[in-house]
Amino acid sequence: MLSSPPKLYVDNVCMTFKTATGVFEALVPVTLSIPSGRFVSLIGPSGCGKSTIFNIIAGLLEPTAGKVLIDGVDATGTIGRVGYMLQKDLLLPWRSVLDNVILGMEIQGVPLREARERALSLLQRYGLSGFEYLYPSTLSGGMRQRAALLRTLLFDTDIILLDEPFGALDAQTKLQMQEWLMQLWSDFGKTVLFVTHDVEEAIYLSDEVHVMGTRPGCILESILIMLPRPRVRTSSLTPEFIAIKEHCLNLLTASAPALPEAA
């Protein structure tokens, strides 16, 4: 652990925004150290700066202070280092599923034919066979999300950031997608950073969960989830799981601001 640097190291990153009404502290120094191959979740109320952290790690936003290190190398403000899946699927309506999925490789200059070949086998293996040449408008929400995730995966970076990927799906589809994601994760061994509102989802999927607080955004507590893998649905009924869930919910309720707030 000491000899090799963590896969992703977020070093005392702060962020302040200047808005029309004043200076807004989105993040006070946040530090995250994530070893290779971990599945890490961030949970917290809306406005706690989860998306801000993601934008900073993806290099889309320059932090006011602090650094982002990938494999020990400074990657602050550089784009194209991590795979980033935003809340919306953002599939381009004028491209087929196959051509949407290869977007990252295409931008990186991989020859189209090679990119398509690589994508085709993946699409077939991960539940999108038969959909390759369809256009996104004909796909269901779950299928669109799968395509968007595979697009992120095919960008072939060690780290992928998933910003509430299943937020808009119905409960049934969401469960299916979680299993699907677990399958992908164990097959590819990527380092995953996952944002969600759903405490149970976070615990079920992750090796560690970071609970965030708001105003200003910060990490309240980091919890290691020692539940054995592979996990099954009924894991969520075990006392350990329930204890962790209760702890997280307590943290979130305590950090929630009192409702009638002084302006």
């Binding site: 934008n55 993806a58 290099g59 889309l60 784009i79 194209g80 280092r81 991590v82 795979g83 980033y84 935003l86 809340q87 919306k88 953002l90 381009l92 004028w94 977007l103 990252g104 295409e106 931008i107 990186q108 960008f155």
Partner: peptide
């Protein structure tokens, strides 16, 4: 959609690539 641009930049796209592959289509 500004998020579309974000996606492209997160994939390491240049401004010209965003223009050609996102803005024009």
């Amino acid at each position: 959609d500004p998020d579309g641009e974000k996606l492209f930049y997160s994939l390491g796209a240049t401004r010209w690539q965003v223009f050609r592959k996102l803005v024009v289509p």
